[in-house]
Design a binder for these strands. Structure first.
Lengths: 343, 343
DNA sequence: TTGTACGCGTTATCAA
DNA sequence: TTGATAACGCGTACAA
């Protein structure tokens, strides 16, 4: 027995398949990549051989030769927010159907960390990148442009239309929440928002509420806007502090559902009746929003659609197709039990 | 101007760096990979050139030559369960520190889908794969073994010790829940479980409860065990059906916190007082469990630790190191307000 | 329709 | 310490 055979248990390469089928390398390659280009007879010989040998194409070699990794990158702020978990999952699901694989990373709202993640993805040769929001380091754009990697901004629409984006107007959506509350008769507002630094969605939501109120001669003073880091328990604490501060308000607008849930829990713990004494709104419409008691009035986002459509736009662009620069996703207010006229 | 220069805006390769620094390809490679091997003077010339040209190593080429992709795969049932989202995030975070990137996929509890995902990862040449649970298609093992890709099973420990695993005994943990309830005086149990087919964790949890009850001469009849697909609202519906069926029980054990939350919400909607009339338990200890009212008695899992440790074990193995075949994660019962002696 | 031959960008072996 | 050169496994003009 030859030595070279002794340790040759490594997985089969395309050349092995070709030899086993009695054809050349290129024919084997074609038969597997685009079966139509090969005669049925030889094609099946090759496919049989591939199956028999358990041939698995070597992604790196393929990527090197074809200049395509069939890999897409997704960078989200955090997977701890169910909306990003769900959209990421939908994204992965959709691209998997086309043979693409998803590389993911989360940066916890740190722009520097995001640059590092993206640069790692660029190195891996991803064919496209899906990002969240509009706020990104200029360094990140340089990287992407230089590497000529297509990218999609999601969860917001780029008003400047410079970049490809897919989302909705966080500002208008938030304004519609405020509008709803004003129509119920509320005039004293408070707000709990996520951190607004490097988070355009959070900023726009606050701005939207402010604008809507201003249009009716109302205002939202800074002391009634709490900016907190992510998390239900953090939201409880923050809301508690707001209450303790002595501020008076009948409507509490929250930047997302998790924050609203925290507020609802704290309100319940303190015996504050929602919506009788206080109206509370969320944003996102996570599953729990509709099940909770009181059910949460919120903005419904088609979360899975965002991931799916991002995938489809990305795939189209990678395939050389054209897509509209900006894709608007319909969102709408869902009025439930957490809002009512002020007591 | 030469034509070749006209369109030569493509990103710099290592050879460009080498030329710019006046060294050979191999020296440039070394200077970047293992700076210690190169004289300080030449090293900095090379590093400067690389920075100036904005050199980004080509991952595929690197993978092809080094037979390492510096990529790890993670396959989870679903990212819609916050425990998997959190552990995946921790995993990504940890491997990123070592320059590794994470490929993820979710299979929605479908073993066939899991095989496809894993096979896609194998094709991409991942250096290691992290899986959830013990139930997998034999096909999946064949793939992994043939490609000689190390893998870790998580969220459970492999009693047979055949595979590397990292987790805890779902059976014992579930038994401790039942034990707690029996100590409170409960004798009539019901259970809401996730689907048990191809889900060893769910099966073990049901089995654990049954065993603990049996040790005290109690039983959990099949008609009192509901198996449902994932989701809070599905859990609500299921629990409603259980109540309507006329079964009498004072303790409801749930396979995870989301199911328990659904049950708590439905109980509240029907005016069933928890824990006075009914005790409810969960499993996982998601953030909401401790914040909800009533706060949920549940099994606490160090979710982020699971991802982090999986990462560390994987990295160690990839680096040629040894790790214990099985790593036991401590979990414990957290008694909160949702359990009390039967009314 | 099939085969030949070269190139993809890097690492690794070996010699200098 | 550095340099030449051969892999690495596949895709694809181009030729047959």
């Amino acid at each position: 027995m030859l030595l070279s055979v002794a340790h040759r248990k490594a997985s089969a390469r395309l050349s092995d398949v070709a030899r086993a089928a009695g054809v050349s390398l290129s024919t084997a390659s074609r038969a597997l990549a685009d079966p139509g280009l090969v005669l049925p007879a030889t094609r099946s010989r090759i496919q049989d051989a591939a199956a028999r040998l358990g041939y698995v194409p070597h992604g790196a070699a393929r990527a090197l030769a074809s200049r395509r990794s069939r890999t897409i990158g997704a960078v989200v702020p955090t997977l701890d927010n169910p909306i990003f978990a769900a959209s990421t999952q939908a994204l992965q699901h959709r691209i998997a159907r086309e043979g693409y694989t998803l590389l993911v990373g989360s940066h916890e709202y740190d722009l520097e960390a995001e640059v590092k993640l993206v640069s790692a993805l660029v190195e891996r040769g991803v064919d496209g990148i899906v990002l969240v929001g509009l706020d990104h380091s200029p360094e990140l754009h340089r990287l992407l442009v230089k590497a000529e990697i297509p990218f999609e901004l999601t969860w917001a629409t780029d008003a400047s239309r410079i970049h490809h984006s897919l989302g909705f107007s966080n500002r208008l959506a938030a304004a519609s929440v405020a509008q709803h509350l004003m129509e119920l008769g509320h005039r004293d507002f408070a707000m709990i928002s996520g951190r607004t630094t490097s988070n355009d969605r959070a900023r726009e939501r606050v701005a939207g509420v402010r604008e809507a109120l201003a249009a009716h001669g109302l205002e939202l003073p800074a002391r009634r806007v709490l900016e907190i880091a992510f998390g239900i328990s953090a939201a409880r604490t923050a809301f508690g502090r707001l209450l303790d501060s002595g501020e008076r308000f009948t409507a509490l607008v929250c930047g997302n559902d998790l924050l609203a849930l925290g507020a609802l829990l704290e309100a319940a713990a303190r015996g504050i009746a929602v919506p009788r004494q206080l109206s509370v709104t969320g944003f996102d419409d996570i599953e729990l929003a509709g099940e909770f008691s009181p059910a949460l009035t919120t903005i419904h986002l088609p979360v899975a659609d965002i991931g799916r459509i991002a995938a489809e736009r990305m795939l189209a662009r990678i395939g050389g197709g054209e897509v509209p620069k900006s894709h608007e996703i319909p969102v709408h207010l869902v009025v439930r039990a957490s809002t009512a006229p002020p007591g």
